[in-house]
Design a protein around this nucleic acid. Structure first.
Lengths: 351, 351
DNA sequence: CTGAAAGCGCTTACAG
DNA sequence: CTGAAAGCGCTTACAG
């Protein structure tokens, strides 16, 4: 059996290069950074020496001297949520162009893990931070001092006076709800995220306002915003509240969970239960039926949030009020008029 | 309008703490790292000083002295591919436990971006690297020297003699193909990934062997392994090859794209075209019909790959041969016997 | 246009 | 059990 172990000969430094080129270390530094005047001859000599000795710059040395690392943290709750994966991709593209590294950190939506990860990030002396706070986050404005540029994305947090980028959740959720009301639905279940998350609060507000304006009764349940959680939740609400003919999904995983739960109960979408999701996913476009959904502009949110961080890094003033990027309702085929089934109890259709 | 700019007062260092506690800097260091003998009294004094002056360790200083950063890179092609998102999550969990930071890098499946990102990672003097190489990667074993511990995940690369973690792709793909053959299908389209990717090569081999053993004709097409790419590809192959009654999807996004393409063509799954996917996704379990799929053990692959890096970091020997984690076929409802439609041209069903 | 000196924050030998 | 000294690799003033 062939085996390998971690190797590692001492690597070349600016000094090695300097010695090889017959110049000083800071001349090497000047050539590499492209700053200050260097004669063309010296420049060529140095570059030749760089390849000759196989020199690779050491970011750690540079960062120590510069007091800041050209790195921005992105602290989210779960990378397997496609919304955050797309957010990471959009943010990374902006930063890469500017020569900044993006460091991804997972909080698992846990308050202590969040603090721990933030402490880790802080130890690298990053230039900035993009943060989607954990549900019961204990972070304060003081905790975010020292990150220089800090910006909230998607979720906000009471008492954190930091710029933020969000969607027009109340309006978008209101529109989604009215789509169902207009189709004739009166008993519409809203399957939301964690009760105290700002995203839940804002989306619930839009839902309640629309439902109450139509003289209907709000039917909400809270979940951990995962598919399995939503699957259990929708089944429970169907059993405890008779006559539900429509549902609203908090995010893409929750919308998945609702469809799974409906299937568990032997209910069809949209014939038995109409559905509107919040946050699009590729499969929703060709699912039978294609799912009507509020498209969250995740790329735009990511780019804007990244730009705010860059502006703050550059010392430009940034508005402290939330920056709102509007979502749009994509009308597909998962909403139809309620059927007569709505009058029978769901348990009668179970096997 | 309230405005904020990036702040940042000079932060406390070990010296600040030392002065406050009336001890030396390296005593502070000893207390913080928990190494060597320190009297209980000194220890208490130092810890009090740490909170008093608001000290936060600087990883940059530590890394410079230690020559290695407690950081491992994970270089993948696209974080919005759920397989890689889950891989990141699994790997991160293992490393977090060991106090290692995971740094996510995107290559966009581009050879130059891959080199660029690797160079960036190298500048941080990381302790290791987990790599899913780009399709036309130009990396050599030499390029990976200096990363100490390097391990390939999911994809391998000819000429790279580095430990790797893969699935039993030929066997699993063979089994998936035989499921379709056994149901009576003879014209089975395999919608694969990029032609030169090791994953494509291995899965195609399993497909071809099974098809040829059954005396049928292989029908393969290559894609960029994204949903939109697969959507175009399946439509094209349906038009150029008459009588196709079944399809095999290379990964989750490709399986999505196949379903979208079938819908475009007015074809139903499974009545008109049976389907088997490679790599599971949550929505596949309750899609109508639930999709039969080869489940890739992504968490197990991630944990194993992470463990190999840890072993190499610890100087333990690691087998250079590929480490194979077996996938399993999940039989759901997207495979049925071919119908008579198979005798009509797909264009006749278009509107 | 180029170089000698100092220091970023930390930890590793080496002395007491 | 504790401290004075040196140095990790780089870049920033400061001189020539």
């Amino acid at each position: 059996m062939a085996t390998l172990t971690g190797g590692g000969e001492p690597s070349a430094t600016v000094k090695t290069v300097a010695a090889h080129a017959g110049v000083s270390a800071q001349t090497v530094s000047r050539v590499l950074r492209g700053t200050g005047y260097v004669s063309e001859e010296t420049r060529t000599k140095v570059l030749a020496a760089v390849t000759a000795v196989g020199y690779h710059p050491n970011a750690v040395g540079r960062s120590l001297r510069a007091a800041r690392t050209p790195m921005v943290g992105l602290l989210i709750t779960d990378i397997t949520n496609p919304f955050y994966a797309s957010l990471h991709k959009a943010v990374e593209a902006v930063f890469r162009e500017r020569g900044l590294t993006l460091m991804l950190l997972n909080s698992d939506d846990d308050r202590d893990t969040e603090r721990q990860q933030l402490e880790l990030l802080r130890s690298y002396r990053p230039s900035g931070l993009l943060l989607a706070p954990a549900v019961h986050s204990s972070l304060t404005t003081d905790d975010l001092a020292g990150f220089g540029a800090a910006v909230l994305v998607s979720r906000t947090l009471r008492g954190l006076s930091v710029p933020s980028v969000v969607t027009n959740e109340p309006e978008a959720m209101g529109e989604a709800t009215r789509t169902l009301l207009d189709a004739g639905h009166r008993r519409i279940a809203a399957v939301l995220g964690p009760q105290d998350a700002s995203t839940t609060v804002r989306r619930e507000a839009g839902y309640r306002e629309a439902v109450l304006a139509a003289g209907a009764e709000p039917l909400v349940c809270y979940t951990d915003q995962t598919g399995p959680g939503a699957r259990t939740a929708i089944r429970h609400v169907l059993h405890t509240h008779a006559g539900i003919t429509a549902a609203l999904g908090f995010n893409a995983p929750v919308t998945e969970g609702i469809l799974a739960g409906l299937r568990d109960e032997g209910l069809r979408c949209p014939q038995d239960v109409s559905l509107v999701g919040f946050t699009d996913a590729p499969w929703m476009a060709f699912y039978p039926p294609p799912i009507t959904v509020v498209r969250q502009p995740v790329e735009a949110m990511g780019r804007l949030a990244a730009q705010l961080v860059l502006d703050m890094v550059d010392g430009k003033p940034v508005a402290a009020e939330p920056h709102v990027v509007p979502g749009t309702l994509l009308r597909r085929e998962s909403v139809v008029a309620p059927s007569s089934r709505s009058l029978t109890s769901p348990s009668s259709t179970q096997r």
